[in-house]
Nucleic acid binder design. Structure first.
Lengths: 195, 195
DNA sequence: GATATATTTGAACAATCGCTCAATTATTTT
DNA sequence: AAAATAATTGAGCGATTGTTCAAATATATC
C-alpha cells in the first residue's frame, strides 16, 4: 500500500557533487542543483532537507571517492610510496582535464566557508583529516617495507603531503605549465622530511 | 561650480577588502558591502561601476598590502631570507588572530571563482604572480649575500614558497595546533630545494 | 546670496534566492 | 478494479540579489 519507485540516490549525489565541486557552495543555487540532478524541489527537500543537506552529502561522497581511489592505487601498486605518488599526480595533474575542478573540493570548501556554516566547515575539515590519516597509514606500511625511514613520524609526513597537495592544486589553477609541478611531485619523497 | 567633497576612496577600498577577504566573492552581497563601506548604491556604482569593480579594486589593494609588507620586512631585516621567513610566519601564523581571514585572499579567490568571472580570476592570478616575482627578487638578493646557493633557480624557489604558503594557510584553517606549522616554516630554508 | 553642477540618497526595479505545499501521479495492497 | 499511500510535481511564497535613477543635497563659482 505504498509507492516505492525512487530516483537513484547515488547517482543524484554524484551529480550534485560534480556541480558543487565545480562552482562551490555559494555560487551553486538550488535551481542549478535541480537541473543538474533532475529532481523537483519537493523530492530534494524530502531526501536531503536543505541546500546544506545536499552539500553535506556531496562532501561525504567526495571524501569517499578520494579514499577509494587511494585504496585502488594501493592495490594496483606493490609500493605504498608509489601509490601515494600516483594519487598526488592524479589529483594535481590529471584532475585538470578530467575533474569538475582542479581544486580539491574539501580544501575549496574550507577556503570558502566561514563560521556562518559551522557544520559544513566541520564536515570538510574532518574529511581532510580522514585523508591525512589514510596517508599516515600508507606511510606506516612504507616504513615496514623500508621505503621510508622508521624514525620518521607518519602523521608529520602525512600532514606534509596534505600541505603539498593543497599548495600544488591551487598553483596548478594559476599556471598552465605542469612541468615544474610534475618535477616537484617526482622529487617529493626524495628529500626532507622524507629523507 | 561643482561639488568636490567625497568619501575617502582609500578607506572605502580598505573596508571593502576586509569584507570580501572574510566572506569571499559570492557570499558578499552589495548590501553587505554598502553597510561595510557606508556608501549608498549610487555612490558605489559611480565610483566602481559594479560589484565586480569593487572586488577588483579590493584584489589590487590586497596585493599591494602584501607587497608593501614584504618590503617593510626587507628593510627591517638585514637578511633577505629572514624577511621571507618573517613574511611567511606573519601570513600563516599571525593572520589567524589579526586578519579578516587566515586564508590568502588571492588564493581564496583563485579557489572560489570559475571561468564565469574571467577578469577577476585573471587579476587574482596575476597578483599571485607578482608576489612570486617579489619572492624571486629577494632570493636573488639572498644569493648575492651567499645566504642561498647561487646554482639555485630563483623562480623555482619562489614558486616553491608560494606553494608552501598556500598549503600552510589552508591547513592552518583546519587545525588549531600551530606548533607543527611553525616548525615547518622554521625548517623551510634548511632543506631541498633551498639546500 | 543666487546659480550651476557634482555628489549623495534611498526607493524601487526585475530577477533570483532557498524553500513550502496542495495537487497530481504512480505503485501496492485489498 | 478500488482503495490506500507514498513519491513527485510545479506554481508560488517572502526575502534577497545586483542595479538603476529621479530627487534631494552640498559645494564652488559668480
Amino acid at each position: 500500500m505504498s509507492k516505492k519507485a525512487k530516483f537513484d540516490r547515488q547517482q543524484v549525489i554524484e551529480n550534485a557533487t560534480n556541480l558543487y565541486w565545480e562552482k562551490g557552495y555559494h555560487a551553486t543555487s538550488m535551481r542549478n542543483l535541480q537541473d543538474a540532478i533532475d529532481l523537483r524541489p519537493g523530492s530534494i527537500y524530502a531526501e536531503f532537507g536543505s541546500k546544506d543537506g545536499v552539500f553535506k552529502a556531496s562532501l561525504e561522497h567526495y571524501a569517499e571517492l578520494g579514499l577509494t581511489e587511494l585504496e585502488n592505487l594501493r592495490v594496483q601498486s606493490s609500493s605504498p610510496v608509489e601509490a601515494l605518488k600516483g594519487f598526488i599526480k592524479q589529483v594535481v595533474i590529471d584532475s585538470q582535464n578530467e575533474a569538475p575542478s582542479c581544486m580539491c573540493m574539501l580544501a575549496k570548501t574550507v577556503a570558502e566557508l566561514t563560521d556562518d556554516q559551522p557544520e559544513l566547515l566541520s564536515v570538510a575539515k574532518n574529511a581532510l583529516k580522514s585523508v591525512e590519516n589514510q596517508f599516515a597509514q600508507l606511510i606506516v606500511e612504507a616504513q615496514k617495507k623500508e621505503e621510508i625511514g622508521k624514525s620518521k613520524d607518519p602523521q608529520e609526513l602525512a600532514r606534509f603531503l596534505q600541505i603539498q597537495i593543497t599548495g600544488l592544486r591551487v598553483y596548478a589553477k594559476t599556471s598552465d605549465d605542469n612541468g615544474p609541478l610534475e618535477k616537484m611531485i617526482d622529487e617529493l619523497f626524495d628529500h626532507h622530511p622524507f629523507q
